[in-house]
C-alpha cells in the first residue's frame, strides 16, 4: 500500500488523476476501520489532512462554504448558529474523539445510508462541490448519493466542500440509536423550514439504500402551510397536518431488517420523529 500525502489541493487532484483507484483519507474514522478489519487493502491511500484549505469554512455569496475537512467538533463549536441542523447532527456523531477527527467530507465520501450528516444536508438543500484536474462541479446533495455506499464522484474527483445556505427558518435533527450515546443510527430524520421560499426540506437516514428526501412530505407540508396562510400568520399547526406529514415521511422510507433494527420499527420511528421534529420546528417558527 502506497501512502500519498499531497500538501496542496492542486497536488491532490494531480495524484487522484494519476491514481484514480486511490482511497482518500481525511480523519480516518471510516477508512481505518475498513483497513483494520481487513475489509479493504487499497493500493493507494491519498491523505488529504495536509491540504489546509479543506479544513476551512467561510461565508461566500450568501452561503457557507464548508471545507470537506472541517471536523464535526468544529461544526459544533463554530457553526451552531449558522448551520443548526448540521450542528445537531454533528453532536450525535460517535464520541468526542471521533468528532475531533471525522468530517462531513468523509461522510459524503463513504456515502453510508447511516451517515449522520446526510439528513441535515438534504433538508438544507446543500450542494456538494467536487473537483478533478478537468474541472469543478456542484452536485445537489440529493443527487450525490447513488447507491449503498456509492456516490456521484468520478474516479478522478475529490470532494472539495459543501455549500449550505444559512437557514431562514428552524431546523431539526433527530436520530434513533439503541443506546443513549455513541451509536450508529437505526433511523434519522432532518427537517428544515425555508420560509423565504415557502419550502420544506427533509432528509431520511438509515431507512433506504441511500439517504433520501421525503419529497411527497415536503410538497404536502409546504402546500398546506401555503394554503392555510401559515407561512405568514404563523398560527397553530393543525394536528392533521403534522400527522399527514409524518405518514408521508414514513412512506418515503424503504428500510430493511438488520442487526440494528427492524424495517417496521424504522418506518414507525421515522413517523414519530417527523411529527415531533415538525412540531418543535413549527413552535420555534411561531416564537420568532
Amino acid at each position: 500500500m502506497e501512502f500519498l500525502q499531497p500538501a496542496t489541493w492542486a497536488e491532490a487532484l494531480q495524484l487522484k488523476a494519476v491514481h484514480p483507484q486511490a482511497v482518500p483519507i481525511q480523519g480516518g474514522t471510516d477508512v481505518m476501520v475498513e483497513l483494520n478489519f481487513d475489509r479493504h487493502r487499497p493500493e493507494f491511500l491519498l491523505d488529504l489532512s495536509r491540504v489546509g484549505e479543506l479544513a476551512q469554512w467561510a461565508p461566500e455569496n450568501g452561503h457557507i462554504r464548508l471545507g470537506a475537512g472541517v471536523t464535526y467538533a468544529r461544526i459544533l463549536t463554530e457553526l451552531s448558529d449558522r448551520l443548526p441542523g448540521l450542528a445537531m447532527a454533528s453532536r450525535t456523531v460517535g464520541s468526542p474523539q471521533i468528532r475531533n477527527r471525522g468530517t462531513v467530507g468523509g461522510n459524503l465520501g463513504a456515502a453510508s445510508p447511516a451517515g449522520d450528516a446526510h439528513p441535515a444536508l438534504l433538508a438544507a438543500f446543500a450542494q456538494v462541490e467536487v473537483e478533478s484536474v478537468s474541472g469543478l462541479r456542484q452536485i445537489p446533495v440529493a443527487e450525490f448519493y447513488t447507491g449503498v455506499k456509492r456516490n456521484a464522484l468520478s474516479p478522478d474527483e475529490l470532494i472539495k466542500a459543501v455549500l449550505i445556505t444559512p437557514p431562514t427558518g428552524p431546523q431539526q435533527f433527530c436520530k434513533i440509536g439503541t443506546r443513549n450515546a455513541m451509536v450508529i443510527s437505526v433511523a434519522a430524520f432532518g427537517l428544515a423550514l425555508h420560509p423565504d421560499r415557502k419550502a420544506v426540506g427533509t432528509g431520511i437516514g438509515s431507512a433506504a439504500p441511500t439517504p433520501r428526501r421525503a419529497l411527497e412530505a415536503e410538497r404536502f407540508l409546504a402546500q398546506s402551510l401555503t394554503d392555510d396562510g401559515l407561512w405568514e400568520f404563523r398560527g397553530a399547526l393543525p394536528d392533521a397536518t403534522s400527522r399527514r406529514f409524518a405518514d408521508l415521511v414514513a412512506d418515503a422510507a424503504s428500510p430493511i431488517d438488520d442487526v440494528r433494527g427492524t424495517a417496521r420499527y424504522r418506518v414507525h420511528s421515522l413517523s414519530v420523529m417527523a411529527r415531533r421534529a415538525l412540531i418543535w420546528a413549527w413552535n420555534d417558527f411561531r416564537r420568532v
Binding site: R91, T92, Q172, C174, K175, N180, V183, V272, R276
Partner: peptide
C-alpha cells in the same frame, strides 16, 4: 442528556 435518546434529540418529553 437526561432524556431517553440523549443528544440524538428524539424527545423533549413527549411520550
Amino acid at each position: 442528556r437526561d432524556l431517553p435518546g440523549g443528544v440524538a434529540n428524539t424527545t423533549h418529553g413527549e411520550g
